[in-house]
């Protein structure tokens, strides 16, 4: 469609409703470049980020009480557990329940800890029975990642490893390779600063 201004004025002929060929070519070029870029690398952008691989047994650290312990990484367990002996529950000065327990690190060094009781948990044992265990929150470092998570306290003296790390820590961070163990030790320098 074109329009013409009357005599004496600047004559303008405008074409409306149809974009120029230059603009269409430009749009097509942009789309081609975008498609080529997307085809080559889009899957990495949209899929879940890659996770580090750890062995089924690793050394982990508890920065709050400077202990390094051996831990099984159990993808079959919901929660994590920590070997504790001489467990006692009492009401602290704040009126809240406190758990006192003893742990031993990989050097055989004993420590007695007192922590607020987070809750009591019913855990299904390997025989299928339910056991009530106290739960505390601790910061644990596995590989280069740390997080405060819940640990059930239990007597694991008849087990080979004093710590069991379950899905409450592992999910979203690591995959577990059954053919490897002690792949790399705890290295969470930032964990000490944050506590």
């Amino acid at each position: 469609m074109s329009c013409t201004v009357s005599k004496g004025d600047t004559v303008e002929r405008r074409r409306t409703g149809t974009p120029s060929r230059g603009r269409i070519s430009g749009l097509v070029c942009v789309l081609i470049v975008f498609s080529l870029l997307s085809l080559s690398c889009s899957s990495d952008i949209f899929l879940a980020p890659k996770k580090d691989s750890l062995g089924w047994v690793e050394q982990v650290s508890f920065p709050e009480f400077e202990a390094i312990l051996d831990a099984k990484l159990d993808t079959g367990a919901d929660t994590s557990s920590l070997h504790a002996s001489d467990m006692k529950l009492f009401i602290g000065n704040s009126g809240k329940t406190v758990v006192e327990f003893r742990i031993e690190d990989h050097n055989g060094k004993d420590q007695v800890l007192q922590l607020p009781l987070a809750r009591q948990a019913k855990i299904k044992t390997k025989k299928g029975t339910l056991q009530v265990r106290p739960v505390v929150k601790l910061v644990v470092c596995v590989g280069a990642q740390f997080e405060e998570i819940e640990f059930t306290l239990v007597d694991r003296s008849h087990f080979e490893y004093p710590v069991l790390i379950g899905r409450n820590f592992l999910a979203g961070k690591f995959v577990v390779d059954s053919s490897r163990s002690f792949t790399f030790g705890p290295s969470c320098q930032a964990a000490g600063d944050k506590i």
Binding site: T75, G76, G128, T129, L170, F174, V175, V176, S178
Partner: peptide, 26 residues
């Protein structure tokens, strides 16, 4: 074994998994 108290009837250990697969707990 009797696994009637567990949700899964089968439990696969390292002898099956090692060298074949890694497990994503999420």
């Amino acid at each position: 074994v009797d696994r009637s108290k567990f949700e899964q009837e089968v439990r696969l250990g390292r002898r099956v998994l090692a060298g074949r697969a890694v497990i994503d707990p999420s």
